[in-house]
């Protein structure tokens, strides 16, 4: 189930790979109120995302509450070939986490 939370698309062109990542996550700030009850919705947001290339971490992102719901991020690998594995793993402030790894096309 955890792996379903991350979608990765990576395409190699001229030895360079553009990688796009979509994580399904509510990114609750903790300041929003439930429309019916008026209670604060507890904060739940991704704090750390590690991007890897063939198992080696190439970028580490730290996020706050102001990254949009279902966060999108994109970056470029300077040197990659088709079939290289690209992975993303995230963890949020509640201890939840998810990861996925795909081969580059």
């Amino acid at each position: 189930m955890a792996s379903k939370s991350v979608k990765i698309r990576g395409k190699v062109k001229d030895g360079v790979a553009k990688v796009k990542v979509l994580i399904s996550h509510p990114m609750e700030t903790g300041t929003r109120r439930d429309a019916d009850t008026g209670d604060l919705i507890p904060a739940k947001y991704i704090q750390e995302v590690v991007y890897s290339h063939n198992g080696k971490a190439v970028m580490t992102a730290y996020w706050g509450t102001s990254v949009s719901k279902n966060p999108y991020s994109a970056f470029t690998l300077k040197s990659a070939t088709v079939g290289d594995m690209v992975g993303v793993s995230w963890s949020d402030n509640t201890g939840a986490s998810g990861e996925n790894e795909i081969p580059l096309k």
């Binding site: 290339h53 730290y62 996020w63 990254v67 991020s73 300077k78």
Partner: peptide
Amino acid sequence: NNPTPLSANFNLTDAVSAEVSTRVKM
């Protein structure tokens, strides 16, 4: 002007180009 101004902090290595994209709330 956000209540928490810091949104995202990407730490790069030599393996990635110096360009990142994301989406933020304002």
